[in-house]
Amino acid sequence: MSLVEICFWALSFVTLVCALMTVLSKNPIFSAIYLLICFASIAGHYLLLNAQFLFIVHIIVYSGAIMVLFLTTLMLMNLNEETEKHKPAIARIGAVVAACILGLVLVSAISKTALVLPQNSGAVDIGAIKVLGKILLNEYFYPFEFISILLLTAMVGAVLLTKKEHKITIK
């Protein structure tokens, strides 16, 4: 077992366990922490897969932006206690069963695949910033610009929804 393999297994183990803990923790704060670790381990995967740029972006976006957003909201709403009631037992069992079925079906369906690595692969550094940048601003220029609309929408929307109402009466 090479080092890489050990890394892979270790990271995968951490990822899955942390994800599971995220799901199972009663306290949302703990969930968030586990999620953070989970994201970090995924970042490790990215490194392992030679996607250096994505590694960085991932850390920034998820660990930096998204997790902060989550935690802020949690704090804002003062939900850091174990307030969450469980769903009724039947719903939880249903949830577990359904998810397990989905997982099993997905895994068994995927296991039918016969992906074999092509021989000539692995020569170019596809994850390098330079390479990605070129692609992003050439081929994917339009989606790249277009995604700004998405972000703009989200921004405007978030503001629209969260802004406190000022009483305006026009009659």
Partner: peptide, 23 residues
């Protein structure tokens, strides 16, 4: 693929399992 599928399923489980919207 397997790891990913498992992770995906855990995510699904979480969506079904929890009541807290943030979670």
């Amino acid at each position: 693929l397997m790891v990913s599928a498992a992770l995906f399923s855990i995510g699904v489980l979480g969506v079904l399992f929890r009541r807290n919207a943030i979670t």
